[in-house]
C-alpha cells in the first residue's frame, strides 16, 4: 500500500522511514506484524467465503467444533505466543538510556517546546526552543515534562513517543543513525493549537554538532548595521524582553521561547513557518491571526520600517 503512494512512506515525520536504531527495530516489528496479519486476514476471509460458497459436501469438515478449537483457540495461542516475546524483546531494546548519552531537557508548553541542553565537559548549558539538534551515532536522552497541560514528544523517524505530564518527569532515549532533517510533533491533544505544535529535529555529524552547540552557548550577536541596531532598540522598547530571553542584552523573560539564536532555527511558530524576515514580521505583527490562541499577543503597533527592522534584527540572531 505504501509503495503505491509514490514514495509516500519516506518523509521527515514518518515511522516508516527509520533514521535511528529504535525506529528501525519498531519498523521491522511493524512489517512482520503487517505481513503476518495480512496472511491471517486472508486465511480467515478465505475460510468464510469457502464456508458460504463451497458445495456442502466439500465444506462439511469445516462445520464442526474442532474448527473452533483449532482455529479460534489453538491457532491464536500459538501465533500470539510467538509474537508476544518478540514484542517484549523489542520493548526491552527500545528506549534504553545509555551511559554517556547527550542530556537534553524539553518542557512542553501551550503550544511550543522549551529546550535546554545540559552542560557537558567544556560545553556550557544553554536554552533554545522548538528545535532539537543531535549528533549522529551518539545516544541522546531527552528528559520531558510539561508546564501546563499534557503534551507528547514524538519524532517518528527516530523512535516512539513519550507523554509530557505536568508534575512528572519522563525520559526518552534514542540514537540518530543518519544525518538529516526530521520533524517532531506534539501527540497529545493540548488545546486550541495542538495541530500547530511541532519542532525541527536536525541530526548532524559530531563535529558539526559540537560547532552548533558552541555557537548556541554564546550570547546574542551584536548588530553590525544601524538598521539591526534600530531593531534591537525596538525589541527593548517594545517590552519583548519581559517574555523572551536574548542573552547578553538584558532581555531575560522566561515566559516565552529563548530568542538568543532564533535566526539559526529552520522554522518559527513551533515548526509552522520557514524562518525569514517576512514570516518573522508577520508573526510579530499578527500573531493571533496566524496561530490564534497562543500566549503571545499580536503586536500590531509595529508597522512599516520599524517592523522590518525588528524582524531583521531577530533574523540576524544566528
Amino acid at each position: 500500500m505504501c509503495a503505491l503512494s509514490v514514495a509516500g512512506c519516506s518523509g521527515v515525520q514518518s515511522a516508516l522511514d527509520p533514521a535511528g536504531g529504535d525506529a528501525l527495530r519498531i519498523y521491522w516489528l511493524t512489517v512482520i506484524m503487517t505481513v503476518g496479519g495480512t496472511l491471517i486476514f486472508l486465511l480467515v476471509t478465505g475460510l468464510l467465503l469457502y464456508a458460504i460458497f463451497a458445495p456442502p459436501e466439500r465444506r462439511a469438515w469445516l462445520g464442526s467444533r474442532r474448527t473452533i478449537v483449532v482455529g479460534g483457540l489453538a491457532f491464536p495461542i500459538v501465533v500470539l505466543s510467538g509474537l508476544l516475546p518478540y514484542g517484549l524483546i523489542v520493548m526491552r531494546d527500545t528506549d534504553v538510556p545509555m551511559p554517556g548519552a547527550l542530556q537534553v531537557e524539553v518542557i512542553g508548553e501551550q503550544y511550543w517546546w522549551r529546550v535546554k541542553y545540559a552542560p557537558e565537559g567544556e560545553a556550557l548549558e544553554f536554552s533554545t526552543a522548538n528545535e532539537l539538534v543531535v549528533p549522529v551515532g551518539r545516544p541522546v536522552t531527552v528528559t520531558v515534562t510539561a508546564a501546563d497541560v499534557i503534551h507528547s514528544f514524538w519524532i517518528p523517524n527516530l523512535g516512539g513517543k513519550v507523554d509530557m505530564i505536568p508534575g512528572r518527569i519522563n525520559r526518552l532515549s534514542f540514537t540518530a543513525e543518519r544525518p538529516g532533517i526530521y520533524r517532531g510533533v506534539c501527540a497529545e491533544f493540548c488545546g486550541d493549537q495542538h495541530a500547530r505544535m511541532a519542532f525541527d529535529v536536525v541530526a548532524l555529524e559530531p563535529t558539526a554538532f559540537e560547532a552548533w552547540r558552541a555557537a548556541q552557548a554564546k550570547p546574542a550577536r551584536e548588530p553590525d548595521h544601524p538598521f539591526l541596531a534600530r531593531g534591537r532598540e525596538l525589541f527593548r522598547a517594545g517590552g519583548c524582553g519581559s517574555c523572551h530571553v536574548v542573552r547578553g542584552t538584558g532581555a531575560d523573560g522566561t515566559f516565552g521561547p529563548d530568542l538568543t539564536h532564533v535566526g539559526s532555527r529552520r522554522t518559527i511558530g513551533a515548526g509552522q513557518f520557514p524562518n525569514n524576515v517576512g514570516t518573522l514580521a508577520g508573526w510579530i505583527a499578527n500573531t493571533q491571526h496566524i496561530k490564534p490562541g497562543v500566549r503571545m499577543p499580536s503586536y500590531g503597533s509595529f508597522t512599516g520600517e520599524d517592523l522590518r527592522a525588528l524582524a531583521a534584527y531577530l533574523e540576524s540572531l544566528r
Binding site: 515511522a15 525506529a23 527495530r25 519498531i26 516489528l29 511493524t30 506484524m33 509474537l83 508476544l84 514484542g87 523489542v90 520493548m91 527500545t94 528506549d95 507528547s152 514524538w154 517518528p156 523512535g159 516512539g160 513517543k161 513519550v162 501527540a187 497529545e188 491533544f189
Partner: peptide, 12 residues
C-alpha cells in the same frame, strides 16, 4: 498491543 509499536501508533 505490542507496546513499542504502540509508541509509534498511539495518538496517530
Amino acid at each position: 498491543a505490542m507496546a513499542p509499536f504502540d509508541w509509534q501508533a498511539h495518538d496517530s
